[in-house]
Design a binder for these strands. Structure first.
Lengths: 125, 125
DNA sequence: GGCTTATTGCGAATGGCTTTTCAAGTGCGG
DNA sequence: CCGCACTTGAAAAGCCATTCGCAATAAGCC
């Protein structure tokens, strides 16, 4: 039987508190605010469980290990800050990308990633 | 001093013949058409040299090791076939993405990746 | 509260991609 | 054509993110 533990609660809570995709290490850091001795293996194990249950979905950005975010949000894309490496959810979508699709190809989905500096890193600089 | 070898010629030729971003293993396979015993280490070494010289640039797609393509092409994006995993260059660009950028953030660049099926995989199926 | 067993944290192990090592091979200036 | 030094291929080593093994811990049913 599956048990409720403070580690699992903490990890779920982290994803509920922080409104951006998180990598395992970010989850670990945040999670330790709630459960001091939290271990990285538990983070990975819990993330995998939450992925299987569909509560989380992976967010893959070019050239980086996956981050994860709560499922259920509507179609959106991401902005990655070059300075702090945090990834933010952005709303909106360039829209019709079929015109970019080569003739004879079938478009199924798309990813858009913006890069730049986030507000915090701009003002802190 | 840097020498001309048939291996290096072959690898450069592969990038000139094939009009899409290639990963090291694709380069190896194609390169072996020209130099039978070509080794993967040589492919990596040569790619790194070509990157340093600016002749190649990396193409990173979400969740995958880098591919490489010849530098100098104008701004463009990529289409990845879900079936054969090949990546194609696409022309055009959704254009102004500033409106997607969160207030206070500074947009520097963007990546767009389309996913679907390429013509070959659609017609072969 | 006791007991069973899922869960945890640690460190070791894994798996992939990439780099390094090294002996053998090969451009190329002289 | 020589010979030096750069290159190569194969295998070993490295790197990292992730997973596993295991003894200790702790849910939660009775």
């Amino acid at each position: 039987m599956e048990r409720n533990t403070k580690q699992r609660d903490a990890i779920r809570q982290v994803f509920e508190e922080v409104p951006r995709p998180l990598g395992p290490n970010e989850v670990l850091e945040e999670g330790r605010r709630h459960v001091a001795g939290l271990g990285i293996a538990t983070v990975y194990r819990t993330i995998n469980t939450l992925l299987e249950s569909g509560w989380l979905i992976p967010v893959e950005l070019p050239g980086e290990p996956p981050r994860y975010e709560r499922s259920g949000a509507e179609h959106h894309h991401h902005f990655r800050c070059r300075v702090c490496a945090r990834v933010f959810e952005i709303h909106g979508c360039p829209g019709d990308l079929r015109e970019l699709t080569p003739t004879g190809f079938q478009l199924e989905r798309h990813e858009v990633t913006l890069y730049g500096q986030c507000e915090r890193c701009l003002t802190t600089a």
